[in-house]
């Protein structure tokens, strides 16, 4: 049986299935991170002392730039498919994946430094919420990289048989990746700068 509305839009929503699905998923993700941001506010309001600029701001700024760059390479990979340029797509999607790796390596440096100096989640409320928020975000980056890696490699075979469906898949993967970038845009000032 063929799954309907993978390419053509549903008449009621005007969206193809995956797009409606990813937006509902992202709405649930907003609530997940929203709950953690609320916890952060409650903890911060109740704290006697809250660290300021004690985390590595230059490294986190670099990571922000890396993630923003990965967002434009992701959207460019989709635009390349719209232009029917598969080679260009592979380049941009490959770059997006590598920038994701780069983000995780930089985060790994930060985590290693924290652990080597005894700054573990059980040491303070700030460190507990810092590791929870950045750890959950890191898991989301890994999830996005698995999907992007699949679409760069074995999943890209679909381009030969169903190019429009494949383009839709990349758009959906892109929506998730941009959301991950969006979450970091808020995490960065909240954890590192304020």
């Amino acid at each position: 049986m063929e799954i309907p509305y993978t390419i053509t839009p549903r008449p009621d929503t005007g969206l193809f299935n995956a797009k409606a699905g990813i937006w509902l998923f992202l709405a649930s993700e907003v609530m997940l991170f929203g709950a953690l941001f609320t916890s952060y506010i409650l903890l911060r309001i109740g704290a006697d002392h809250w660290p300021h600029h004690e985390l590595d701001v230059p490294l986190a700024t670099l990571n922000t730039a890396v993630l923003i760059t990965s967002s434009i390479t992701m959207v460019m990979s989709w635009a390349s498919l719209m232009e029917k340029n598969f080679k260009k797509y592979r380049v941009y999607m490959g770059l997006t994946f590598l920038l994701g790796v780069c983000f995780l390596i930089i985060k790994g440096f930060e985590y290693t430094h924290h652990f080597s100096t005894g700054e573990t989640p059980n040491k303070s409320t700030f460190l507990a919420i810092y590791f929870t928020l950045t750890g959950l975000h890191g898991l989301h980056v890994i999830g996005g990289m698995i999907v992007n890696g699949y679409f760069w490699g074995p999943g890209s075979k679909m381009w030969k048989t169903q190019p429009e469906r494949f383009t839709n898949r990349i758009e959906v993967a892109g929506l998730y990746w941009h959301f991950v970038d969006l979450v970091w845009i808020f995490l960065f000032p909240v954890l590192y700068l304020l």
Binding site: G14, G174, D181, I185
Partner: peptide
């Protein structure tokens, strides 16, 4: 900016 342009929310369907 990310939501409007990279996620194309500036020109999306009413359902979204």
């Amino acid at each position: 900016l990310v939501a409007s342009y990279f996620m194309h929310l500036i020109s999306e369907k009413k359902a979204i």
